[in-house]
Design a protein around this nucleic acid. Sequence first.
DNA 1: ATGGAACTGGGACAAATGTCCTTTTTTCAA
DNA 2: TTGAAAAAAGGACATTTGTCCCAGTTCCAT
Lengths: 191, 191
Amino acid sequence: MIRVNEELADYVSTLINARNSIWSKETYPAKTLIIKQDSRYSKVHLIRDGIAKCYISDENGKEFIQEFLGQGMEFGELEVFDRLTTICSVESITALHTVTISHSNYQKLLDADKTFNKLVIKALSDKIRFKAPRHSYQHGYPIEANLIRLKETFPEFISVIPKKDIANYIGITGRSLNRALKELKAKSALF
Amino acid sequence: MIRVNEELADYVSTLINARNSIWSKETYPAKTLIIKQDSRYSKVHLIRDGIAKCYISDENGKEFIQEFLGQGMEFGELEVFDRLTTICSVESITALHTVTISHSNYQKLLDADKTFNKLVIKALSDKIRFKAPRHSYQHGYPIEANLIRLKETFPEFISVIPKKDIANYIGITGRSLNRALKELKAKSALF
DNA sequence: ATGGAACTGGGACAAATGTCCTTTTTTCAA
DNA sequence: TTGAAAAAAGGACATTTGTCCCAGTTCCAT
């Protein structure tokens, strides 16, 4: 549920130790909007610590959460490749520490550093790989099944992530989430 | 709705002209299963002509269509990066012409050819970029709105793609699709 | 500590969608 | 060309989920 990328986190740490200068450290309090949908930015973030949500919101203000991002996850990188505006907003859930690198340095690194290049491709590939079955499952199974599944992969999700965000992640309303949770509590010792 | 990648198609054509030997041409009739979910393959396909569907099926046999693939789209490439089994099945809808390259030659090309590397990264990035708003929209809006949207981006979709596949693409049942189409026909001159 | 804002929980009803089934139409191979 | 199989259309009903509320609770900034 909260995606991480340890390999990339480790490698970037190595890079920073070797050549600190092109990376900057940033800190955000909880609930801060870091990237706003349909805007332009000139840097890529990598999460060192904390949890963020990446979401699309529509004209009616509905949010649909794409991913919860944890340690080692990048965001703002897609715009390096196509130079378009962002498709998602990113907002910290907990306090968040990131390191950032400019688009141009990121591109240089991609060209010059084969290991980095491979890790970035792998990270993109994982984003595709994880999203596919998730949406498929969410559509094809009732809400309760989805909650049980989340509970299995991340037992503390209910206390860590606000209810509204959980609902927006599954793609349902808060009301439906509550109904399902109530029934699960009645049925199962898990909840 | 049917994704294409002209730039990649063109570039691969150039590569084939320059060094034919590492690419093979393949042809499949309509409705052929080319890649089966949870299996291993050792080559990457790129579509030269025709339409295919990429889908996940669950234990109950429900299919959820991830993408319709047209000219210039790759499939089977994710498995080069992580060496895992496939997450999707790919099946031709029309007769399909592809060119294929072995995993090892694909990897060599990624390392040696910066242009190819960039185009592949861009292709991955696009897969992410297109998938996000689509799922968001599908979840957040009624079926009719989704159909109108498809009609706008690809007016002939109803005659080209089987109803069952359209339903599986939107993530609804055939029954619901028919209901919605009937109402749209009554309401709008478009359908 | 306290008052307002935001989160949480749930009742009552409406609407959308799914399930199950039957009928009609189209497709395609013998 | 024709008969079996697949695809499409739709009736009747059940179920799920959403919408619109309101009430209780928690969380902060003053």
